[in-house]
Amino acid sequence: MPTSMPCPSMRIPIELLTQASFFQFGTVIENPAHSQAPPSLQSPRPEAVSANQGTALKFLDVTHMTNLYGLAPSKKPARAVMNMFVCAPRDLRPHEPSESMPSSWGDIDFDEDDDGDGDRQLFDVKILERHPFTSQTFIPMGLSQTDRHTQYLVIVAPTLPASASQRRTGRAPPYPTPGVKKQKSIKDIFARARPSPFTNEATPPPSIFTKLHPSQRPKGPGLPDLKNLRAFVATGNQAVTYGAGTWHAPMAVIGDRPIDFVVVQFANDVRIEDCQEIEIIPDKNADEGMVVSVDTYPSGRVLVKAGSDPLKSKL
């Protein structure tokens, strides 16, 4: 049974999935030529080289695969694994007016009807999970970029500081217990002095994690920051990598049919180190909890209601 966390009533608008908007959470993998983002918001193209006797263009390092299992308490080595998830469309409930508090997009009017002929539905976020020591890449199969009747949502949240997490639940965050620290030797103690007696450096060397992409760095033991929950809609030509430790909802398919995802990650088969879950439960004063507002046009296109002005458009 996962740890639970109380939450207020809050409705989250949908954003277009771009590398610029998803930067802190991970990587969006797509052919730059097919990007839906306007040129001003597109990230620099990855390095490309000619391949296959000149018949292909090879983009290099399109995502960040991270293995942080060396930090795990068990110290059990991890291996690269590739699984397949066949994800059925989620049940959505009809739109109804709500007294939800504003999300980080406080200027969105969720009760304003953008198109009377479209569908206005709601997706309840009931659980979030994270993989603290590995990235996780979801690659959709058989979903066309032009398919407007089946898409998937990418729902993520930043990580709270550990101290704030404990105050919000009255118990320690759901994270592996750190190992007992060894008593430091005299040499270790003196090595922290500045300047160091063992080197000519006046400051300690930078952490190896500072060289990593922000989404690759360890997130710490904190709970999800629900007030800054974000929801994105992806097209069929986009794959997504969640950075190690990124809180996210299980994959949410919306539309007419299932989507097959190939999922690439590392794992060491220690359950709490491979995956941690937290149940999102409305608090006693909340009527519905965390909800993503899913508005679509008759064609099935999802209405993007949040983001920079150029992105407030239909897919």
Rank of each mutant, 00 (worst) to 15 (best):
D147T: 03
V81T: 11
R148V: 02
G245Q: 04
I14W: 08
R93M: 11
R93I: 08
Y175R: 05
N52E: 13
T18S: 13
P224C: 10
E15G: 11
A164W: 05
P39H: 11
A20W: 10
E112N: 05
A56G: 13
P102S: 11
K314S: 14
R301N: 15
F138W: 09
L68E: 09
R148F: 00
L68N: 15
G142I: 02
T296K: 06
R79G: 06
Q151W: 08
M65R: 14
K187E: 05
T146S: 09
V291G: 06
V240K: 02
S207K: 05
R171F: 01
E273Y: 01
F190D: 05
R217C: 13
Q265H: 10
A172I: 06
G142N: 06
T146A: 07
R194P: 00
A239E: 00
Q151H: 11
G236N: 04
D225E: 12
Q121N: 11
S104E: 03
S4C: 07
L226E: 03
T246P: 13
G106L: 04
F138G: 01
L223Y: 10
A48Y: 01
H213N: 12
L315W: 14
R120D: 13
S144A: 12
A88T: 08
N268C: 04
F198W: 02
R148Q: 03
D295L: 14
V154T: 09
V294I: 08
P218V: 12
R90S: 09
V302W: 09
E112G: 00
L122G: 08
G255Y: 04
V81A: 10
I208H: 05
D117I: 01
A202F: 13
V233W: 08
Q24P: 12
P250C: 06
M251G: 05
T66E: 06
A191K: 13
T66F: 01
A249N: 14
F266M: 08
G236L: 01
Y242L: 15
H64P: 02
M10V: 02
T177Q: 15
P310Y: 07
T177F: 13
M290F: 15
E279R: 01
T210E: 05
D188M: 08
A306Q: 00
E99Q: 09
T210K: 08
Q36R: 15
R217P: 11
A80S: 06
P46K: 13
S9V: 04
Y242P: 14
F209G: 05
I278P: 01
D109M: 13
M1V: 13
S40N: 15
E279L: 06
Q53P: 00
I29M: 09
L160K: 01
P32D: 12
V154I: 10
A252M: 08
A51Q: 04
Q238I: 03
V304G: 04
S43T: 15
P97E: 13
M82K: 07
A172M: 12
S74Q: 05
L68I: 10
E15W: 05
T241F: 09
L71C: 06
R257P: 09
A172T: 11
G118Y: 04
L57P: 03
G142P: 02
